[in-house]
Structures are given as C-alpha cells and as structure tokens.
C-alpha cells in the first residue's frame, strides 16, 4: 500500500520527558552506551493509488501546518514507502 511517512520530533531545546524516562530505564537495564533518547511521532498517510510528487508536497504542507506545531516541533522527514 503506497504511503507517505511524516516524522515529527519535539524541538531540541525542549525537554522531552518521555525520552528522558525511557533513557533512565535503559540505563537501569544495562544499556550504558545510550546517552539519550528522544521520542517523536511517525504519521502514516495511506493511499490506494501511487503517490505523486504533488501528494508529497501536500504532505509536507500538512506536516508543517497541522501534524506539527512549529513553536514546539519540527517535521524532520517526509518519505514515500511501498509506492
């Protein structure tokens, strides 16, 4: 199934409490080399036809205007899968 993947991450400067809690847990279970964990969102936009360049451009726009909030998050990737 063709899909566009939009990945959103909290801005670097913001505290990511989820990531911090997961990192603490990993350290407790012996994964000492992992220095930090940050958690964002992967959003899949599904299509029942091949994805076009216009779809990707639209997804980028949706990503920046709706799926993320530019004050607190960044769209870090918009990619196509299974096209």
């Amino acid at each position: 199934m063709p899909k566009i993947i939009v990945e959103v991450m909290p801005k670097e400067v913001l505290l990511d409490p989820q990531g911090k809690a997961v990192a603490n847990s990993l350290h407790r279970t012996g994964h000492k080399d992992i220095t930090a964990v940050r958690i964002g969102k992967r959003i899949e936009l599904h299509f029942d036809r091949p994805v076009t360049e216009a779809d990707v451009a639209a997804a980028q726009k949706i990503g920046e205007s709706f799926l993320s909030n530019a004050v607190i998050e960044d769209v870090v990737a918009v990619t196509v899968e299974d096209n």
Partner: peptide, 16 residues
Amino acid sequence: VESHLLPGGLIRNEAQ
C-alpha cells in the same frame, strides 16, 4: 493558539 488567533504554544507543565 492552535488556530493562530493567539501566538505561541502550550507544552507539558515543567514539573510534569
């Protein structure tokens, strides 16, 4: 804020 009628954003409370 999400409607852009007011600027900025609101995030998780500092103390969680």
